[in-house]
Design a protein around this nucleic acid. Structure first.
Lengths: 148, 148
DNA sequence: CGCTATCCTTACGTTTACGTAAAGTAGAGA
DNA sequence: TCTCTACTTTACGTAAACGTAAGGATAGCG
């Protein structure tokens, strides 16, 4: 998986295609603060993205599709990610172990929040699936009984 | 769970409260064909619901919240339910075993469709959950390493 | 039979999550 | 340096899923 090319910057259209969405959507997500939007970009200049950015967009789309949250709720849930990006920067500057521990603990909490939500959803779906399986079983039974 | 009272007909407001939604939503679902809407009701008369109707609404809301489908997609998925209600009526008239077998088989297929979708969703969520658990694990590890 | 709460229909309003069009600009390659 | 494509911003459009308000009718109770 290592790179032939050294992180060629991607344009918004390429990112969109890679992720399976549209440029408009990516701009929109930036507009509402779901995506960061590089600070050193001035009016009119093109947006450029790294591979990490692509991953981020991918994750957002994934969560959007899997959990049924509004983008605002998703935004709050992803303070996690936004914060983690921020923390990664801080990480490099932090020298004391205590500093680093604090950063890791925050990250842990964020992941915990996400996990709770995802776990809850999964359990609900599992429950529903079980009920459907049961229903199917009973139908099959009745069908078998008819075939005596 | 047996009844003190014999199926008192419910009004739309009661149903809404029981399910945790609004009367408007129930009317809307009827409007777009997601809910049947009793045929023998004339212009201006109140809607009345049975306990079975409540269950149906509950299931719709549940599916709406758990799967991220549009109401139209949900509608198609629930041809299942609508059809099954219809089939239940037919059931009482059907005398030949072959007839009954056909009805059961159709029901089975509908349940199968739903199950496929729900199962797929669950697997995706499970995958996501696993990834999050892994992430948490790695964070914990790094945190422990700091504390040596 | 009258009262009142809840319902009815009709219709316009609202939010979310983008789509789409227009007019102009940036940037990679020849 | 020119050119062409993919980008930029601005702004209006839209579909889905209801919310809400108005004006009037119904159903159960006393």
């Amino acid at each position: 998986m290592s790179a032939i090319e050294t992180e060629r910057p991607l344009r918004i259209g390429e990112v969109a295609e890679l992720v399976g969405t549209t440029a408009r959507t990516i701009r929109y997500y930036e507009e509402i603060g779901l995506l960061p939007g590089s600070a050193e970009r001035e009016q009119g200049q093109h947006r450029f993205y790294t591979q990490a950015d692509v991953e981020r967009v991918r994750e957002i789309v994934r969560l959007r599709d899997l959990l049924g949250l509004s983008l605002e709720q998703l935004s709050r849930l992803l303070e996690a990610e936004s914060a983690r990006a921020e923390l990664r920067r801080e990480w490099k500057l932090a020298d004391s172990g205590a500093e680093r521990a604090r950063i890791l603990e925050e990250a842990l909490e964020h992941v915990g929040t996400q996990l709770e939500l995802v776990h809850g959803r999964r359990v609900e779906l599992e429950q529903l699936e079980a009920e459907l399986v049961a229903k199917r079983g009973s139908l099959r039974e009745r069908l078998a009984e008819l075939a005596v």
